[in-house]
Design a binder for these strands. Structure first.
Lengths: 166, 166
DNA sequence: GTCCCTATACTCGGATAGCAAGTGTCCGAGTATAGGCGG
DNA sequence: CCGCCTATACTCGGACACTTGCTATCCGAGTATAGGGAC
């Protein structure tokens, strides 16, 4: 079971965008440069986030991406689901209905117990991710960083960002 | 994020083996036949379960697989980990240490907040799977099945199993 | 009749091809900007 | 000097190759059994 690498990129990018003041946008290329990521591939994931209504894409010159909702209204689960899709990791093939001991399909009224247990586990996983918002995340991120990183980032963003009157 | 199909097969197979009386074994080919699964591929996963100490392989004629521990001592997490490996789904690439705003590696003493949140979610997932044993599972499975399936399975197993004096 | 030996058949175990999904990349459509021109 | 128009450059969006890991399979090593022979 392996999670797409794009999830990590999407979370970091969303976290950065959440720190921008309203009206500021950051192009995908700049976001990629900030973490030394392959720009076109990151763009693909940012598009997925925009489709999910997490980011808003501002087209044209001086455009870029910005958060579409307040950081407190975006959970980690929202971001993960936007990139990975909402299909569960464990997919029940109903193999209990196959083989020499199976009976007619209409007799399997109760849900498969294995399926149920695996679904419960994934629900716990989702609940844990839903409990943390991007705002919570940033509240933890900034104090944990070295002051030099914060200062450099402020300068860098001030240069890379595209401001626009709302 | 997609879980290996072998996890489902391993869980069903382990559940079936847990119902066998002590001293009875079931060959991999028979287990595959029971659920109409590709026998060689299922065998691969059963080997993984044996390597993890969940199943015990009895070699030679009239051999087969049996549970290595009491069903109450085998959790769903044990089975999933045996098949999928213990590497976490989310792997932190520490991309925060890359890019123009990064500082020396020695300054990143706090764990990455994103990494921590994702790890917490996976811990919740593991905790949910650890809370259910194969014994619990079977206690739920049997009453949920149609009586005909139970009867057929008893007959089928009685014919397919390899008994041996302990 | 009993014990031992041998050949057999069946079991698991690891090493080997095929395929799908994720990874990485590119070029085209659309838009706000900036400059130039006319009034 | 002000407003409008046009060309530009930059942005996002979807369609196209490539690589890694899962899927599926095979054949070889090892062992308990079952039968036959000798005592």
């Amino acid at each position: 079971m392996r999670m797409s690498e794009g999830v990590e990129w999407a979370l970091h990018s969303t976290s950065v965008l959440a720190m921008l003041p309203p009206g500021w946008t950051l192009p995908a290329a700049k976001l990629a440069e900030l973490h030394e990521l392959p720009a076109p591939y990151l763009a693909k994931h940012l598009q997925a986030l925009a489709r999910a209504g997490i980011l808003a894409a501002v087209p044209g010159a001086k455009g870029g991406y910005r958060l579409a909702r307040p950081p407190g209204d975006v959970t980690l689960l929202d971001v993960v689901t936007a990139v990975e899709g909402n299909t569960p990791a464990f997919r029940c093939g109903e193999i209990r209905q196959q083989g020499p001991c199976a009976v007619g399909r209409e007799h399997y009224v109760n849900r498969c117990a294995i399926h149920a247990a695996m679904a419960d586990a994934e629900d716990a996983w989702r609940a844990s991710l839903s409990a943390v918002t991007i705002a919570d995340l940033n509240a933890r991120v900034v104090p944990s960083l070295h002051p030099d990183t914060v200062a450099r980032s402020l300068d860098w963003v001030r240069d890379a960002v595209n401001k626009r009157e709302e």
